[in-house]
Design a protein around this nucleic acid. Structure first.
Length: 447
RNA sequence: GGGGAUGUGGUGUAGAGGCCUAACAUGCAACCCUGUCAAGGUUGAGAUCGCGGGUUCGAAUCCCGUCAUCCCCGCCA
């Protein structure tokens, strides 16, 4: 009995907090909301307070002039805890609002925010937004981008897990550069030098020898000193690798499935964010248009009249031409190009057995931008020794990696999706920094 | 790594040798307005025009340097 009494008292004292988006389900009840002071609109005898929480916003109506005066002294983004009655009101945004509020100020902010968060779009230049990221990210549109990002990572994980892939985390401090290139960050590691991982490539291949199918969601670091709208020096790589494949086409089919899963999850989990950003989910047909590298060159030559048939790689402009072509001719936002010259690709790329000049490496171009790189990899120890020797790379840097191949690895392949690039093309942001929480580039190391 | 452009109140812009003691919008402050929803109205505060040097009687404006930012190419996710 005494227990029951205690419970009762607690229930009265602690009204459960609800989200601003749940008001419609609580009409006639007294509820508790918590969040940020988004906007205050004062009229002569009534004041409207817009409260923002992680899910959305709600309007609170204040008739009490004394309370209104107290609130007017607060700056935007002050933290509030509000209890009040939920009333259905056709004039209210969303049809419901809070009346007769009791307001507790949790944090009284002293200065106005550097950006106007209450406006439908953030009216500031990208550098200003990035400089003030801790505040700018609170804008409904900005945060919608990263709700999409979260859904994308979920979709990637769910699709692969459903196919028996195992999620792994590989080291980001590594002893040797993955591709042997110069564009790696060197760090002090006790008395030695080490590097920040450019890619989980070598480790995920090793792990194919354990789990056959692995994936990783993690950062990749590139020390390339380029300042472009599509590069950052730290990005999130959505990596997958699968064993016992016949050829790279199986990897490409898997990639298309994964992207379908990513978009489906976005639709499910981030519908509001998609609507807020006015995103059109991309056209990803059952059969994604697929070109061999040499066909891609011919197509570019035909489309533009430029003589590129001797080229060994596709330029950014070429990729845009292919993107336009795929949309026009195949109603697809995606186009695969495979068979890039073996010399152009990383040492672990499997050559095309028919024409070894070309490889079984592919790129997936999304709306004219290289979004994914992938390939069938070499899987025989001897092939690795030859590939490294041809490129003049020392085997000593790859001892652990090569051990996996000495002890038997299946034919395998995989890919890496750039998360920020995926989002940037999806929302048609002109700069990748717009879809990066806290971008790291040539000059930006904070915030 | 190569090339091009731009830096003006908190934010977004205008001004392109003297009209600038720097304009407009928005934010901020004060007041007014019974329902706003990017509210509206009146008044006010807020910028040594990125920084350093030069040309000129006179520089936000022209020149040089420097720093920052943005764009294109190369390379990549």
């Amino acid at each position: 009995m005494r227990r029951g009494a205690v419970f009762y008292v607690l229930e009265v004292l602690t009204v459960e907090r609800i989200w601003t988006t749940e008001l419609a389900d609580h009409v006639g009840e007294r509820v508790l909301l918590k969040g940020w002071l988004h906007r205050l609109r004062q009229l002569s005898h009534v004041t409207f307070l817009v409260l923002r929480d992680a899910q959305g916003t709600a309007q609170i109506v204040i008739d009490d002039t004394q309370l209104a005066a107290q609130l007017a002294a607060l700056q935007a983004e002050s933290l509030l805890s509000i209890q009040g009655e939920v009333v259905a009101e056709p004039q209210a945004p969303g049809g419901v609002e809070i009346h007769q509020p009791q307001i507790e100020v949790l944090v009284a902010v002293q200065e106005p925010p550097p950006l106007e968060l209450f406006r439908p779009t953030l009216k500031a230049q990208l550098p200003t937004i990035l400089d003030h990221a801790p505040v700018a990210l609170r804008h409904l549109r900005q945060r919608a981008i990263f709700q999409l990002s979260s859904a994308a990572m979920n979709g990637f994980r769910d699709t692969l897990r459903a196919r028996k892939f195992v999620e792994i985390q590989t080291p980001k401090i590594v002893g040797a550069a993955t591709e042997g290139g110069a564009n790696v960050f060197r760090i002090d590691y006790f008395d030695r030098s080490a590097y920040l991982s450019q890619s989980p490539q070598l480790y995920k291949q090793i792990m194919v020898g354990v789990f056959e199918r692995v994936f990783e969601v993690g950062p990749a670091f590139r020390a390339e000193p380029h300042d472009t709208p599509r590069h950052i020096n730290e990005f999130v790589s959505l990596d997958a690798e699968i064993g016992f494949i016949r050829d790279h086409f199986e990897v490409m089919a898997l990639l298309a499935e994964v992207l379908r899963g990513v978009f489906a999850t976005m639709q499910q989990e981030a519908e509001t964010a998609l609507a807020q950003l006015k995103v059109q989910l991309p056209m990803l047909p059952e059969t994604v248009p697929t070109l061999h590298f040499s066909e891609a060159l011919e197509l570019v030559a035909r489309e533009t009249g430029a003589d590129v048939t001797q080229a060994v790689d596709l330029s950014g402009a070429d990729e845009r031409v292919l993107g336009t072509w795929a949309l026009r001719e195949h109603n697809s936002d995606f186009v695969f190009v495979w068979g890039y010259p073996t010399q152009q690709r990383a040492f672990y790329t499997h050559p095309d057995p028919e024409r070894p000049f070309y490889s079984r490496g592919f790129d997936l171009i999304f709306r004219g931008l290289e979004l994914v790189s992938g390939a069938q990899r070499l899987h025989r120890y001897e092939e690795y020794l030859t590939a490294l020797a041809v490129r003049g790379m020392p085997t000593e840097s790859f001892v652990g990696y090569l051990e996996a191949f000495r002890h038997g690895m299946p034919p395998h392949g995989g890919f890496a999706i750039g998360l920020e690039r995926l989002l940037a093309r999806l929302i048609e942001a002109p700069n990748i920094r717009e879809t990066t929480l806290f971008p790291r580039d040539l000059t930006r190391l904070t915030p």
